[in-house]
Nucleic acid binder design. Structure first.
Lengths: 338, 338
DNA sequence: ATGAAAGCGCTAACAA
DNA sequence: TTGTTAGCGCTTTCAT
């Protein structure tokens, strides 16, 4: 258990200055690697810093400079690996530049996102990274009035507040729809999670149906649940869909978790893939590569998106004006399930 | 693109006070729901807050009160779902209490963890959540001197700085070793990632080998790589191990990602599981439930650990003194792969 | 129930 | 090269 008998008041710049026999300003200069400090003074100060174990208080520094070097990162979910990867990409870049990510999780709930945005604005973050282009009116208002750069990620189908880094979900859906149609599939179904919350999955489905329509096709059956997508939901969802519609010859899933779940059902139920049934997902997760039949999917550049989003914020803060919209595109992976 | 023509200086408490015709102090009281404010004044102030879209500056508030309500959360990795789930559990609890998580990722590198700790201390977090009990000497020193509560999670095999919430990895390894021995397995191998970095996986392996020894057994073969664990590494690792040691009758993996990868290899290579080969993992991930043969594994309470860690910090901050060590235990899942 | 004064720990601007 | 002054936006304390 922690001993509470340590110095009741923490060590400040003034303490260091006193020990080093200089003014506080000089200590501040040393810590900021200012040029105009003599080597001798620098050494004295550094010795005092080490001796006291001084850690500068950024609260005070940020209050003065009005630059926090805090970056607000708000993601819809931490329940599958997609957004942690975005976060990882962003964090690598931010950390290297001396910035800190402050995270929020909206649970795919725009009202909750709004509350988080308001709470984070209290910290005056130097930049914002958000998932998606859809926000509540008040959230939009706050973000438009904020003077820090804002990057909306993982979607380019719409108007960004400031900058967007991602890809077109609509296009990804279209590509897969076109692909299945071209492969000769005619009786196509859909299995997804809660589309009213996951707006990007909904956009993929919309693009998918557009492509089918352009090929004179339509969805013959669909399964959606009022719960988040998951492997088990994909497995049970496909089981239900196939039970009700045994004649389907292809199924598009809202993402790879769902699709791999579906593939597992086929393995167990003895449904021949892709002979009798083709399966396709979205995201390009590692699990899709590790399964017995490599999953046909579209790989989203999640890690790069996080990285580039962070880079754009840093560029903007450095006075450069990077492109407003960056579509990183997706990689089509023609696997063995189609 | 963002318009930069907005108010050059942001709205402060003073602005609100002026508009409401009261002093700054009164505005502060209203915002903190102080008792001694008349209904009339409260209404006036609230109207001014709304009219100006005022968001209090927490930097200033925290500087005064020396309470940031920032919680530093440092995890080794965001590359699989394990730590995002811990983070999710912690964040749910923190968010509800008006606290913000500031995250750091150490990449299973204790030196990097030390740098992150030092950087975060500059924000004077109200609490700390870290993975594991092993830290560099300087990291330990900083954390011992910090006056905020510190919770080390995901491991109880060792001495915590302040509090620990987790489970015994050693015991989890022992349990699985004992189980395989009891099931009559005699020629047992191991497949893992980089154990010099993932110290908790190393502890599980140690416990596993202890249990084997107690049953007069030992590891007949092992595969470890200088890279992080992953599905594909598990798949290729098992392939290599079996090629070199075709007589193995069981393999223990460093975690479920690796084990599921291994299972996929068996499915493809036609290795009969569990008849010829038994497989066991650790973590209890959803993927282990969704595969054709439910994976034998031990489920770690990741989400609860994050939650309880956060609760303990809040309890400590509220002046309560919760237990110093909380072992949440693990759930043994006897699946179909053994 | 409300306000005035002081100060949290730092840095920008200016002075020496 | 170094120091002094002022103030960032808030809350604490003490007065009224």
């Amino acid at each position: 258990m922690k001993v509470q008998s340590e110095p009741a008041t923490s060590i400040t710049l003034e303490d260091v200055a006193r020990l080093a026999g200089v003014s506080g300003m000089t200590v501040s200069r040393v810590l900021q690697n200012h040029v105009n400090v003599s080597e001798q003074t620098r050494a004295k100060v550094q010795a005092a810093v080490t001796a006291l174990g001084y850690v500068p208080n950024r609260l005070a520094g940020a209050l003065t400079t009005a630059r926090t070097r805090l970056i607000a990162v708000i993601v819809p979910s931490l329940s599958n690996i997609v957004f942690p990867e975005v976060l990882r990409g962003a964090n690598e870049c931010l950390d290297a530049a001396g910035y800190q990510a402050v995270i929020g999780v909206s649970d795919y709930d725009l009202e909750k996102e709004e509350r988080i945005i308001a709470a984070m604005q209290a910290w005056r973050p130097s930049g914002w990274i958000l998932a998606g282009l859809e926000h509540t009116p008040r959230a939009l208002q706050i973000l438009r009035e904020v003077r820090s750069p804002v990057v909306e990620v993982m979607d380019t189908d719409g108007e960004p507040i400031d900058m967007a880094v991602g890809f077109s979900n609509m296009q990804a859906g279209r590509d897969m729809g076109r692909f299945l149609a071209d492969m000769g599939r005619r009786r196509i179904g859909y299995v997804g999670g809660d589309l009213s919350r996951d707006l990007r999955a909904a956009k993929r489905k919309e693009g998918f149906e557009q492509a089918l329509a352009e090929n004179g096709l339509e969805l013959k059956a669909r399964f959606t649940a009022q719960q988040p997508s998951s492997l088990l939901l994909g497995r049970s969802g496909l089981a239900q869909l196939i039970a009700a519609h045994p004649d389907l010859d292809a199924v598009y899933f809202s993402n790879d978790d769902m699709a791999v779940g579906g593939l597992m059902h086929c393995l167990v139920a003895g449904i021949e893939v892709p002979g009798r049934l083709a399966l396709a997902g979205f995201n390009g997760l590692e699990i899709g590569e590790a399964v017995p039949l490599r999953l046909t999917t579209i790989k989203s550049p999640r890690h790069s998106i996080g990285q580039r989003a962070a880079e754009h914020i840093l560029a903007r803060l450095a006075g450069k004006v990077p492109p407003l919209r960056l579509d990183l595109g997706c990689e089509f992976i023609a696997g063995q399930t189609t």
